[in-house]
Design a protein around this nucleic acid. Structure first.
Ligand SMILES: [Mn+2]
Ligand SMILES: [Mn+2]
Ligand SMILES: [Mn+2]
Ligand SMILES: [Mn+2]
Lengths: 222, 222
DNA sequence: ATAAATTTTTAGATTAGTCTAAAAATTTAT
DNA sequence: ATAAATTTTTAGACTAATCTAAAAATTTAT
């Protein structure tokens, strides 16, 4: 079975929406995510249902079948492994790789991805801290990972991921040195707007509530 | 300007046919090369002509415009650079890379290919000995390159390329150790069928006329 | 120079993916 | 519970790329 790029992108979209909402994915949500029209989604979803990749009932939304889920996870594996390659081997910055990985993820060859993974020493996380599923589809777990907004004053953590992966946010973080692996300590929070002072690399910086809500850290139990 | 995978494949086919025949490329030839039907070729060729990528006159065949030529060369550059990557970095054999490179060559990002080339130390030839055009479209030249069938008895040469790149032929060569960089000496030729005895790595082997006609060697002027 | 064979083009259909506009179903508000 | 708003589906049309069958042009053979 070989699927088109479009089918794969639908499955990936349904996967990520389902895992955010934990319920049937609506036509409108898919349309918005894929920047297409709801009527197009209805058509495609019927096609995917015929191929047993999604479960679909009129007016009731869509979920992935086991088969559809496997395919989606595989594409995500491809995407993230390519992102690692682009950053680690070709020197791209983390905000420059997503669009190219969107293309590379559709290259059809399991052998290729296995060799790439091996070439890259079987990475468990991509340049944005997102877990890379293994060949069997299992995602690595980050222990004790919480949002920066969820840890208390005087507590320390290591940046291990971003919830929002937009290029704008990634570039902002780059500028503030808030990159993966960096250690931070929450110094204080301003009641006014819930912005926080952090200590990072011996410097003190202030970041907004927005930023705190989108940075994933691993708590350091002192 | 961004072209579809199909358009790119047509341009590449026209490029390679034109450079073999040195005259307008016929509808049937393109159809055969791309495993499609002549009527489909006519349609596509009209489209390419409208986009100024080919010069086309009804019943008179096709040639590439400067613009079409540039695009074709660029795809070939992509293809060959990816083949180098697959062999050098991922350990593929030279008969295993073509199909994957056929997919990878269509990834849209000039930046990516430039970085790949740099990562691979700007290779001038691909794993089959074919020259890789540089960014400006210039192909490297192999000096003194001739077919093995064209050098005389007692003469020596180094294998630098293959005229036929079918997997069957590549696998045959692999088995006989007739791989790029190997030195050979022509020991004798049998009048009966023009097969030849070669000395390679201190062993004596016999190869057919067919093989001689498809191996490119650089003559060693002793 | 005509006829036969071959090549190329045209005409009309098909499939994947998309769109707009309108109809139908569902959800939300009164 | 009815009406209003929203969501989803259907109907019909479009583009890219392909195909088959038939017509037209070109080339080759007699
Ligand atoms: Mn990405
Ligand atoms: Mn990522
Ligand atoms: Mn190749
Ligand atoms: Mn090659």
């Amino acid at each position: 079975m070989n699927y088109t790029k479009t089918e794969e992108n639908y499955l990936k979209a349904i996967f990520s929406l389902y895992n955010k909402e934990n319920k049937e994915v609506s036509t409108n949500m898919i349309a918005e995510k894929l920047k297409t029209k709801p009527s197009s989604v209805t058509d495609m979803v019927k096609k995917l249902a015929n191929k047993n990749l999604v479960k679909y009932e009129k007016y009731k939304g869509v979920t992935l079948t086991k088969k559809g889920n496997n395919i989606a996870i595989n594409i995500i594996r491809n995407h993230r492994i390519w992102e690692v390659f682009l950053v680690e081997k070709l020197g791209y910055k983390w905000d420059e790789v997503h669009e190219i990985a969107e293309q590379l993820e559709h290259i059809k060859s399991d052998e290729l991805i296995d060799r790439m993974a091996e070439f890259l020493d079987n990475p468990k996380f991509d340049p944005h801290g997102d877990p890379i599923p293994d060949k069997t589809g299992k995602f690595a777990e980050r222990k004790k990972a919480v949002l920066l907004s969820e840890i208390g004053i005087k507590e320390k953590g290591i940046i291990v991921g971003v919830k929002n992966t937009s290029n704008d946010f990634l570039q902002y973080l780059e500028e503030k040195s808030l990159t993966l692996g960096k250690q931070i300590e929450v110094i204080k929070e301003f009641d006014f707007d819930k912005s926080r002072n952090l200590s990072i690399e011996n410097k003190l910086i202030t970041i907004s509530k927005e930023v705190c809500n989108n940075l994933i850290v691993e708590k350091i139990i002192a």
